[in-house]
């Protein structure tokens, strides 16, 4: 081995021992594609992600739990497989309150509203990449949003 360590060799070593995971680029592209440049939101960040096997037999029913968090809001979702290529999403918004929850995919969006305990569900949506967007509900009397009370949160792209 020659005497000088080159950064090029170090770079190559890291690239082969800890390569970027498959799908990294695609998920970044989807996140960009679904970016709403007009919306002022706080980006939530992933804090936890885990898979749990549910059911007793080897039917590969695997539930994904994913938690995003920001300064004033966090969002936990449990994603369970349904028949075909579909998923069910059970979610909790914290601090608990009613908000509009939208799971956006490239073609469509699946909307739900959380209850006073922050719980929401999307009974069925296709497997694929999505972003979650949380927004304040209109005031109960139907008046327009009051600007400074409206809050918007969005997540990066993740696999449902």
């Amino acid at each position: 081995m020659d005497n000088d360590i080159q950064f090029a060799d170090l770079a190559e070593m890291w690239q082969s021992h800890d390569p970027a995971p498959p799908g990294l680029v695609e998920r970044a592209l989807v996140a960009i594609e679904m970016e709403d440049l007009d919306a002022e939101y706080e980006l939530l960040h992933i804090v936890e992600r885990g898979r749990t096997l549910v059911g007793t037999r080897g039917d590969q029913a695997e539930t994904l739990t994913i938690v995003f968090s920001g300064n004033d809001c966090s969002l936990m979702m449990r994603i369970s497989p349904l028949d075909g290529d579909c998923r069910r999403v059970d979610g909790w918004v914290s601090p608990p309150r009613p908000v509009r929850v939208s799971l956006k995919q490239q073609e469509t969006a699946f909307d739900s509203t959380s209850d006073a305990k922050g719980r929401f569900e999307i009974a069925r949506m296709p497997h694929g990449l999505a972003r979650a967007v949380l927004s304040s509900l209109p005031a109960p009397d139907g008046t327009a949003h009051v600007e400074h009370t409206e809050q918007l949160f969005a997540t990066p792209a993740f696999e449902v």
Binding site: A11, W14, Q15, D18, P19, A20, P21, L24, V25, R27, A28, A31, I32, E35, L43, H45, I46, E48, R49, P156, A157
Partner: peptide
């Protein structure tokens, strides 16, 4: 550049989920 950014953020002892989040946040 995503593979390069991956290397940069993984220098900070992040797990895969956090590293990917950091790469996406950078592009956004």
């Amino acid at each position: 550049l995503s593979p390069v950014l991956w290397q940069v953020v993984r220098a900070y002892r992040l797990d895969h989920g956090q590293a990917e989040d950091a790469v996406q946040s950078t592009w956004l």
